[in-house]
Simulated assay, not measured.
Amino acid sequence: MTREASPAQRTRALIIDAAADLLAASASGEFSTREVCDAAGVTAPTLYHHFGDKDGLLREVAADRFSRYLTRKQALETTGDPVEDFRRGWDMHVEFGVANPALYNIMYGRRIEGRTTPADHAHAVLVTMMRDLERAGRLRMPTGTAADMVASAAVGVTLHLIRTRAAADDHLSALVRDAVTAAVISPPTVPGAASVTPQLARAAAQLEAEMPHGSVGTLRASEATLLREWLTQLSVLGRMAGGAPS
């Protein structure tokens, strides 16, 4: 059973809620501490006692609202398909940012000194997801690189949608999401799949290794991504069949 909140905890929560409401209502994402005090019915010394300064208050508002979002996200049951879970997580991240533009800008658009930020927490959750994929043999690259790649793409897309006032389900988000998925997550191995000769596996691995170093003829980016996925599959099948490239 949860203990009843103390007067200090209730005051703190009241100030955070007032600041969050002002943040959401502000077109510029700006508000004054005086406005917060008026809305919460507290004095300035009370606000500074709990949060130190405005940056401290902003940090706590972001942490509180992101924690609520993360609780809802983690309460969802997994689908059993890591790719589908990844896609769903991406979509929820973008939806949260577009629905809370001022809050998202505090998390990712500016630097607030102090304790671990919600953005750092979100990245730690992402790293855990990448480690799970690595243990399942589905990650194409080192865990840290994969997490940085996903985070850079997701944050970039979300900030772009906020800047352009686009919807969370804008086609750009799906395009980038699917491209990142193909680049980071490898397809599952297929039991009983036809064997691949060592020569073909070596050729596929060599061509895949060369692709980042130059354009691939007239192929579009999406086609080049698909080609790289096919080459990776051939390499994986070659290793399964004992024909690992030397």
Rank of each mutant, 00 (worst) to 15 (best):
7 P>N: 08
10 R>C: 04
17 D>N: 13
18 A>S: 13
24 A>S: 12
25 A>D: 02
25 A>N: 00
27 A>Q: 03
28 S>L: 08
29 G>M: 02
29 G>T: 05
32 S>Q: 07
39 A>Q: 11
39 A>E: 10
39 A>Y: 06
40 A>K: 00
45 P>R: 05
47 L>P: 04
50 H>E: 03
53 D>S: 07
54 K>G: 03
57 L>N: 06
60 E>F: 02
61 V>H: 01
65 R>K: 14
67 S>L: 00
70 L>D: 13
87 R>M: 06
91 D>N: 14
92 M>V: 09
96 F>M: 07
98 V>E: 05
101 P>Y: 03
105 N>L: 10
108 Y>F: 14
110 R>A: 04
110 R>Q: 13
114 G>W: 11
115 R>F: 05
123 H>M: 14
123 H>V: 02
124 A>F: 10
125 V>F: 07
126 L>R: 08
126 L>M: 13
130 M>K: 06
142 P>C: 08
147 A>D: 02
149 M>D: 09
151 A>G: 04
156 G>F: 05
159 L>F: 08
160 H>V: 14
160 H>R: 15
161 L>I: 01
162 I>L: 08
163 R>T: 09
165 R>S: 08
168 A>E: 00
169 D>F: 02
177 R>W: 01
181 T>S: 14
183 A>D: 11
183 A>I: 00
187 P>S: 09
188 P>N: 06
193 A>V: 14
193 A>E: 15
194 A>P: 07
204 A>E: 02
207 L>A: 06
216 V>M: 11
220 R>D: 15
221 A>P: 09
226 L>W: 08
227 L>Y: 07
227 L>C: 06
228 R>S: 15
229 E>P: 05
235 S>Y: 00
237 L>F: 12
238 G>Y: 04
240 M>Q: 14
243 G>W: 03
